[in-house]
Every structure is written in structure tokens, then in C-alpha cells.
């Protein structure tokens, strides 16, 4: 039993990590709490649902299209709203604007799909296999595999591609990067795109393994991303992975052994405790203000 619970926890953790990575990268560059993150990925997930059920597209194709739509929506929001506030504004102003953007996307999503819980088909045939005495669902294995694959690709991309290095430069020092001829706007835009893209993949994986999706998961997803990023260390890739894992595992353990109604209170409490005790997260380093 415990083995299965942990495995599912790891699966959920990997999906959370996917959702968190995008948010955390945005934070790393712009220091902006993107409240619209969860709503973007739910929008993409619902696009995928429509493609799957209405147009009977092949799951891989549907996910690809939905992910690109999600990425596009994220960079559209950046282009229309956040970009104008980037240079000059007080941090709070852009945070509140992000809330406004979240409202708008939420409302558009609701107009198209409503706010009730919908059935989300499994991407793969759900069956159980016996693996070293553990009863494991194939869906979970594939979900975990896809999530890990995406993260691995992202890590390789960030480490070895020119783009990845440019993103790293921009998050270290935007002005200096700009002077070095790195096109800031394009980089920021693409980070949003990647964040939305990965978020949608995470959202689809999550929804298909639980066979459910709803508008409310968007706001929850935003909070999952916040919490996981804060636990691991906000702004860092490794931190997002670690935080996602910790959150997914602990949620699942509590859900199974105590009660699933404690899932959300657990998340909020973890968030508060981390922010009070070690706001830089497990992997984060402290940033000393310069006087």
C-alpha cells in the first residue's frame, strides 16, 4: 500500500514540478508573482479536452496543440499587460495587474466551458500491472514518464542551448544582459511561452490521471506553483522540482492516511510556514539587499 501511495505521490509531484517550473522561471526573471499562471494552464487543458472529445484528435497531437495555445496565451498576456509595467512600476502594481489578468482569463474560460467539474478522458488505456508486488496503474507510469521527460528536456535546454544561457543571463541582471545585446523582450516572452507550455502539459497529465478537470483547478494550480516554488527555492529550476515533489508526496500521503479534505489546508500551512521560516526555500540562497 505505502509503495503505491508513494509512487502516486511521486507522479503528482512530477506534474506539480512541471506546473511550477514555468511559474518559477518567470519569477526568476521578472520577480513577478504571476497570478494568471494557473488560469493559463487550465485554459490550455480545456482546449485539449475539446480537441480530444469534440474533434477526436490523437492525444499526442491534442496535447501539442493545447500546449502551444497555452504558451501563446501566456506570452500574449505578457505582451499586452506585463510588458508595459516591467520597467518602472512598484512590484505591487504588477502583482495586482496579474490578478486582474487572472480574472479576465478565468472569465473567458468560464464563458467557454462553464465552471463545473468535467470528465477528462484517460490518454492511455487504464490498466494495472504488477511490478515487484506493487499494483501500478499504467496511466501513472506514463504520466510520470512524460513529466520527467519534459523536465529533463528543459534542463538540457537551459544548460546547453544558447537560449537557455541567455535566459540565465537575463535573470541574473536584466540591464547587463540587455547591454550585451540579448533581446530582452524576446527572452521574457519565450520564458512565458515555455511556462504556459509546460503548465498545460502538466495540467493535461493531471486531469487525465484523475479523469476530471474544472475551472477551480486553475486557482489551485496557481497556489500549487507558488507553494512548490517557495518550498524548493523560488526562481530556481531545481527548487521547483524539489518543491513539486515534496508537495505532491506530502499531499498524497495526507490524503490517503488522514483525509483528503486536509489537502488544501496542508498546502496553505506549508506555504505560510516556509515563508516565515525560510522564505528563500530549501535550495535558494539569501539575497542581501544592497545599501
Amino acid at each position: 500500500m505505502l509503495g503505491e501511495v508513494i509512487l502516486v505521490g511521486v507522479m503528482v509531484g512530477a506534474v506539480y514540478a512541471l506546473v511550477t517550473v514555468g511559474y518559477s522561471m518567470v519569477y526568476g526573471i521578472l520577480k513577478l508573482m504571476n497570478f494568471a499562471h494557473g488560469d493559463v494552464y487550465i485554459f490550455g487543458t480545456l482546449v485539449c479536452l475539446t480537441l480530444l472529445t469534440k474533434y477526436n484528435l490523437h492525444p499526442v497531437l491534442a496535447i501539442l496543440i493545447a500546449a502551444i495555445v497555452g504558451g501563446g496565451l501566456a506570452s500574449l498576456v505578457e505582451l499586452l499587460v506585463y510588458r508595459r509595467l516591467r520597467a518602472e512600476q512598484h512590484r505591487l502594481i504588477s502583482m495586482i495587474t496579474a490578478l486582474g489578468a487572472a480574472y479576465v482569463i478565468q472569465n473567458i474560460t468560464e464563458l467557454n466551458w462553464g465552471n463545473q467539474v468535467m470528465f477528462f478522458p484517460s490518454i492511455v488505456k487504464s490498466k494495472f500491472i504488477n511490478f515487484w508486488g506493487l499494483q501500478i496503474s499504467v496511466t501513472h507510469i506514463i504520466t510520470l514518464f512524460v513529466a520527467v521527460l519534459c523536465i529533463a528536456v528543459l534542463i538540457l535546454f537551459m544548460r546547453y542551448s544558447r537560449y537557455g544561457k541567455a535566459i540565465d543571463c537575463v535573470s541574473q541582471d536584466m540591464d547587463a544582459a540587455s547591454l550585451m545585446g540579448i533581446p530582452i523582450n524576446r527572452i521574457v516572452s519565450s520564458v512565458y511561452f515555455m511556462g504556459g507550455l509546460l503548465g498545460v502539459i502538466g495540467g493535461v497529465l493531471y486531469s487525465s490521471s484523475y479523469n476530471a478537470v474544472s475551472l477551480g483547478m486553475g486557482f489551485r494550480g496557481t497556489l500549487v506553483a507558488f507553494t512548490a516554488a517557495v518550498i524548493g527555492g523560488i526562481g530556481s529550476l531545481g527548487g521547483a522540482l524539489l518543491g513539486g515533489m515534496i508537495l505532491g508526496l506530502s499531499e498524497n500521503l495526507i490524503g490517503v492516511y488522514i483525509s483528503s479534505s486536509y489537502r488544501d489546508p496542508l498546502m496553505y500551512s506549508l506555504l505560510i510556514i516556509m515563508l516565515l521560516v525560510k522564505p528563500t526555500g530549501i535550495l535558494g540562497s539569501s539575497d542581501q539587499a544592497k545599501v
Binding site: 508595459r84 512598484h90 489578468a101 480574472y103
Partner: peptide, 30 residues
């Protein structure tokens, strides 16, 4: 049905165009 859309848009527009608010004089804008 459009309530949040309208609230969100008002929020974004005010912050983009007049961050000091309609009747305010000073803002966080630096």
C-alpha cells in the same frame, strides 16, 4: 457572466493608464 471579465479589465486598465487611481494624486510609481 462577464462580471469578472469587467472587473479584471477595469483593474488592468486603471493600473496601466492611471496607476495613481482615478482620484488619487500620488502613487507607487517611481
Amino acid at each position: 457572466d462577464y462580471r469578472m471579465l469587467i472587473i479584471g479589465l477595469i483593474m488592468i486598465l486603471v493600473l496601466l493608464l492611471r496607476p495613481q487611481g482615478i482620484f488619487g494624486s500620488s502613487s507607487f510609481k517611481s
